[in-house]
Design a protein around this nucleic acid. Structure first.
Length: 270
DNA sequence: ACTGGCACCTGGGCGC
DNA sequence: TGCGCCCAGGTGCCAG
């Protein structure tokens, strides 16, 4: 489920329920996530108040006075607010009980997600060297062109590299490149400044629109469950192999780039 | 420094 | 119904 827009939507959805709430108890049913959940996480979180929840890249940062819990949703993770006592389903690995009587429930069938405690997350090895946020001013055509200089990787793999720019997942990489008219297989080092300027704008636009769509569709996900595929509606190429390109009508093609399915229009993307 | 490939794990959908 | 196969929204790590 989680691309940057869903992580951001999750953050906005749960923030009102957990900000300024004391953590009364942490229940970890299964510590086997991408990395084993350290007992440091429950030990440090219990008794603390969650001052705020922020996002950096696809990490949700639960900030307390003594440190931060970093949460990554991996490929299949999700969070929701429940009433304490609601029986856990399979894959509901962690509950964080709040003074209000509600709890934050973390679910992750594939267990690629992670929960990590960090005193200073900005300096944590997993976050320290990440690229800029795509919706920040640090992210622009100049920056992309500079980082791409001399590089032979495909532009699709390049923009999906979190050390270049964070938050561009497999879906939005295809969508952004289509909007920008750039072929996903083009070497990153062989794209003009002007086209990078355009690409940066398209990434920004696609992600911002998706956040907005997520915001409306997932508004009630604290009650029930989030609905996967809610933004399928807005996709122009991803998953649409064979369908006509919304721009020019040529059939959308699918090809594997960097071991990931990629979708593009062979006519309008160069 | 870069690059490509593999690994982690579970479930859903498909064809037989 | 069951089984085997392929696919899935991420990303750290390894060898070359």
């Amino acid at each position: 489920m989680p691309e940057l827009p869903e992580v951001e939507t999750s953050r906005r959805g749960i923030a009102p329920w957990i900000e300024n709430q004391a953590v009364t108890k942490v229940v970890v049913r299964d510590r086997r996530l991408r990395w084993p959940v350290s007992e440091e996480v429950d030990r440090n979180l219990e008794g603390q108040t969650i001052d705020s929840i922020r996002r950096r890249a696809k990490y949700l940062l639960f900030e307390t006075g003594t440190g931060t819990m970093m949460m990554h949703l991996g490929m299949s993770g999700s969070v929701r607010i429940i009433e304490v006592g609601e029986p856990p389903m399979k894959h509901d690995h962690v509950d964080i009980h709040l003074a209000s009587g509600k709890a934050l429930r973390f679910r992750d069938p594939r267990r690629f997600g992670s929960l990590i405690w960090a005193e200073n997350p900005r300096e944590h090895a997993l976050i320290r060297d990440l690229g800029p946020e795509p919706l920040s001013d640090d992210f622009n055509g100049d920056y992309l062109r500079e980082r791409a200089s001399g590089r032979k990787v495909s532009i699709k793999q390049f923009i999906m590299n979190a050390h270049i720019v964070v938050g561009v997942g497999n879906i939005y990489a295809s969508e952004s490149l289509h909007m920008a008219g750039i072929h996903p297989n083009r070497p990153a080092g062989r794209i003009s400044e002007a086209r990078y300027e355009r690409l940066a704008g398209c990434i920004r636009k696609v992600l911002a629109a998706a956040i907005e769509a997520g915001g409306t569709t997932l508004r009630d996900f604290t009650g029930s469950d989030g609905q996967p595929g809610y933004f399928a509606h807005h996709l122009n190429v991803y998953g649409h192999a064979g369908a006509p390109c919304p721009g020019c009508g040529a059939p959308i093609r699918q090809r594997v780039i960097g071991q990931r399915a990629s979708y593009f229009c062979p006519a309008c993307q160069r």
